[in-house]
Structures are given as structure tokens and as C-alpha cells.
């Protein structure tokens, strides 16, 4: 029985306080239901998302390093869990840069000192995603034993997005053979949802891009990309797209509406966070996992399926 990650630092990030609140709610509810301890990083700041790096990549490294410094040096944790792909990606990127690049260490050292906190050093902390967290701390077997309300063959397309697997070099633990996550064919979400009773459809766009970085600045391209993701999921026979990133999730929901209004193309596939689906399988009520907070209305659908 896996005993790793029973108690980890939790970094929700800005999106989970806003548009991705359902992801925060369902992640916390899932931890509670599974008996896993999440301790929120104290007085955290934004990791820099996808924007600060375009102003200056070193500042993104600093912002992410401050979060890791608090988790490791002030709170004494050896692992921090970030459910948001953007946060997860940036913390991983900062870890890589600080191990690899003297200039990044210099900038982080200088800014940390000026800001009045300990500088983070590579190796102080391990950054994990919510998928790693459930996979390691509970595992498929453990999850299977705890399922009270099986997903009963719900047909799911698993959508991982860009930031969870690319670029490869910032994820040294991936692509390490059996048991590890794959950057070309990720499967952790598939594994967990299958353990909860879902049927994973063959979805070729698991790591395709939703255009999240330009969701407002170049909306037409985002709508095109999202529509492709939605229609391909429907063609693959999926009833639900399972997500693991608030930017992807909101992007899918937002451009599903935009495609309907601007292009007159309606798609009916539902969009739910994987934590929401796992929570429902553990017998939690839809409200407990924030289904009412999603833009994509799946309440009626879940009732029909006997999951609500």
C-alpha cells in the first residue's frame, strides 16, 4: 500500500480562487474523503501563469521559487501539490532552471534577499500534480476499494493539455518506463478514472492545445482549437471530457459557448474536472464537488446517469 504524499503542501493558485473554483472545491473534498491532508501554502503568490514569462522569464522563475521557498523552508514540507497545470508547470520549470542555470540562481537570490525571504534552492522540494498525488497516495486499487457509486461505464475522453507534459526536460520523472507517466501518451487520469468505473474512449487529442494562452487575445483561434477538441471527443463516443487544468477547463467551456454563439456550432459533450468525477464515484454529492460552479451544465446529465 502506497504511503507517499499522505500530507502535502497545497498550492491552489489564482485560477482556483476564481474561474476554477470548482477544481479547488473538488480537490479539497477528494482529499478529505480519502483521508489525505492538504495544508495550503501560507500567503502564496501567483506563479506567473503563462504571461509573466513573456515579460521576463526570470521573474516567472522568481515568483514560482517564492512559493516553493515558503512550502519548503517556512512550512517544512518536502512535497507541494499543484492541481493547476500552469502552476505545476511553472514550479517544475523553476526547479529545472535553478538546478541548471547560474543566472537564474543569481536573479532568484537577489530578488529573494530584497523581498526579505529565504531563497529557494533546487532540490528543497518536490512538485507534484493532483494526478501524481492520488495515483501515489491512494493508487488505482485503493481507489477501486473506496468507490461507492461507480461511474458505471461513463464514456470519458481524458484531456491533459500542454503544460502537463511539455517541454519534456522539465519533467525528469516522466518517461521512465513502467509505472511512470508518459509525455507522449499520458495515462494517469485514464488509470484513475478507469479504477472508478469509467470507460476511457480512444481520444487522439489528449495533449493537443486549447489555445488557452490566447483565449481572450486571439479568441478566433482558441474557438477553432476548442471546437476541434469537443467535436473529436464526440466523434470518439465520449459523453464527458475530463480535465485536469483550470485554464483548459474554462477554455473548453467558454469556447463551447462562443462556438455556439459565433459559429452556430453546438456541441453537447460535458466538461468535468477529473476530481469532480472521482468525488462523485466516492459518493460525494455534486454540490460538494462544485458541479454547480461549472459553466457546462451537467447536473441533469449526472442525474440521468445515477451519479447525482
Amino acid at each position: 500500500m502506497a504511503q507517499k504524499y499522505q500530507k502535502v503542501a497545497y498550492y491552489p493558485g489564482c485560477a482556483l480562487e476564481g474561474s476554477g473554483h470548482a477544481y479547488d472545491r473538488s480537490t479539497r473534498a477528494l482529499g478529505k474523503a480519502l483521508g489525505l491532508d492538504l495544508v495550503e501554502v501560507k500567503n502564496w503568490n501567483c506563479c506567473g501563469a503563462m504571461e509573466v514569462k513573456n515579460v521576463d522569464p526570470k521573474l516567472q522563475t522568481y515568483l514560482s521559487s517564492r512559493v516553493m521557498s515558503i512550502a519548503a523552508k517556512e512550512m517544512g514540507f518536502d512535497a507541494v501539490m499543484a492541481p493547476c497545470n500552469g502552476c505545476y508547470h511553472n514550479l517544475k520549470k523553476a526547479e529545472y532552471d535553478l538546478a541548471d542555470d547560474q543566472e537564474s540562481r543569481d536573479v532568484v537570490g537577489k530578488l529573494s534577499e530584497a523581498a526579505g525571504h529565504a531563497a529557494y534552492q533546487a532540490g528543497n522540494l518536490e512538485t507534484i500534480h493532483a494526478l501524481d498525488w492520488i495515483k501515489e497516495a491512494i493508487g488505482e486499487d485503493g481507489l477501486g476499494e473506496r468507490v461507492k457509486n461507480s461511474l458505471k461505464g461513463l464514456r470519458v475522453a481524458n484531456y491533459y493539455g500542454c503544460m502537463y507534459t511539455r517541454p519534456r526536460h522539465i519533467f525528469p520523472e516522466k518517461d521512465q518506463g513502467a509505472g511512470s507517466e508518459s509525455t507522449s501518451q499520458p495515462h494517469f487520469m485514464d488509470d484513475l478514472l478507469a479504477a472508478a468505473g469509467a470507460v476511457n474512449v480512444d481520444y487522439p487529442l489528449k495533449t493537443a492545445c486549447c489555445g488557452g494562452a490566447h483565449t481572450l487575445s486571439d479568441s478566433d483561434i482558441s474557438t477553432k482549437l476548442v471546437l476541434n477538441l469537443l467535436q473529436t471527443a464526440e466523434a470518439a463516443g465520449a459523453e464527458v471530457i475530463a480535465t485536469e487544468c483550470p485554464t483548459c477547463h474554462t477554455g473548453l467551456e467558454m469556447h463551447q459557448v462562443r462556438a455556439e454563439k459565433m459559429l452556430g456550432v453546438k456541441t453537447t459533450v460535458k466538461v468535468l474536472y477529473f476530481t469532480q468525477l472521482l468525488g462523485l464515484a466516492l459518493g460525494l454529492k455534486p454540490r460538494k464537488v462544485g458541479v454547480h460552479e461549472n459553466i457546462s451544465d451537467s447536473i441533469g446529465f449526472l442525474k440521468e446517469k445515477g451519479l447525482a
Partner: peptide
């Protein structure tokens, strides 16, 4: 769109 497929 910074999807990083090229970098990959």
C-alpha cells in the same frame, strides 16, 4: 499559443 509542441 505557447503549446510547446515545437520545443518538444
Amino acid at each position: 499559443v505557447s503549446c510547446n509542441k515545437c520545443t518538444y
